[in-house]
Amino acid sequence: MAIEFQEKTVLLKGCVGVEEAELLLEWLQKTPCGQVDLTACTHLHAANLQVLMAARPTVLAWPKEAALLAWLTSSLQST
């Protein structure tokens, strides 16, 4: 499973596809203080990025993958 929901944290792992965006959004809607762990994430479909950008959860850990990291930090870290 590319997405694993824990009590307060969601783990995104491997290649997170477009279908997961819906689940992620639902979870973030239910869990206002939810946090995101991207350590094991290698790619994130843009729909997930959009959800994260709109929800602005705390990111506990960033991905290791350099290109993805660059895009995620520039979209989720600023302001």
Binding site: V18, A21, E22, L24, L25, L28, Q29, A47, L49, Q50, V51, M53, A54, A55, A70, W71, S74, S75, S78
Partner: peptide, 18 residues
């Protein structure tokens, strides 16, 4: 690089992920 939204994000409850 930079990613932004076309218009301000709606309330999360209103968001259409797709």
């Amino acid at each position: 690089r930079d990613v932004s939204a076309r218009k301000p994000w709606p309330e999360l409850a209103e968001l259409d992920a797709y």
